[in-house]
Amino acid sequence: TRVETATETAWISLVTALHLVLGLSAVLGLLLLRWQFPAHYRRLRHALW
């Protein structure tokens, strides 16, 4: 049971790290898009909202 718990903890930390990385890359990508294509971003936002 001790090994299982350790594996579970490792998986949880791995998944958390993955989610953090994905979230950060998504935010960075959005910022980059907004910085590179302001007109396109505004049009996209206008279409979405």
Rank of each mutant, 00 (worst) to 15 (best):
H46I: 05
V15A: 01
A17S: 09
A6L: 09
T9Y: 09
A39K: 13
S13P: 04
R34D: 02
Q36C: 06
R2D: 12
V3W: 00
T1S: 11
R42C: 08
R42A: 10
R42S: 13
H19P: 00
T5W: 01
G23I: 12
V15K: 05
L32Q: 03
R42H: 09
V27Y: 12
V15F: 04
V21G: 06
V15Q: 06
R34V: 06
E8H: 00
L14V: 09
R2Y: 13
P38C: 06
V27Q: 00
L44V: 14
W49E: 03
L44R: 03
L20K: 00
L32Y: 05
T16M: 09
V3S: 01
V3D: 01
Y41V: 15
R34N: 04
G29Y: 01
A26E: 03
H19E: 05
L22A: 14
L28I: 03
A47C: 08
R43M: 11
L33G: 04
S13L: 11
L14F: 00
A26H: 07
T5K: 02
A17D: 01
Q36G: 15
V27W: 10
L33F: 06
L31F: 10
V3M: 05
E8A: 06
I12N: 03
A39T: 15
L14P: 00
L24D: 05
T5G: 00
L24I: 10
A17K: 00
P38W: 07
H46Y: 07
R42Q: 15
W11E: 01
R2K: 13
S13V: 12
A39Y: 12
Y41S: 09
L18F: 13
L24R: 01
E4L: 11
A47F: 10
Y41C: 14
L32A: 13
I12L: 12
H40E: 09
S13G: 13
L30C: 14
R2N: 09
S25F: 06
A6S: 14
V15E: 02
L20T: 06
T16W: 00
T1A: 14
A6D: 05
A47P: 06
Q36F: 07
L20G: 09
P38F: 08
L22G: 06
L31E: 05
L14S: 03
V15M: 09
F37H: 04
P38R: 15
L44G: 02
L44F: 13
R45V: 07
A39L: 14
R42D: 11
W11P: 06
A47T: 09
A10N: 07
L44Q: 01
S13E: 05
T1C: 11
R43S: 09
I12C: 06
L22P: 03
S25C: 14
G29V: 14
W49G: 03
E8F: 04
L31C: 15
R34P: 07
L33S: 04
E8P: 09
Y41E: 07
L30H: 05
R42T: 15
V21D: 02
A26W: 08
R42N: 15
A47N: 10
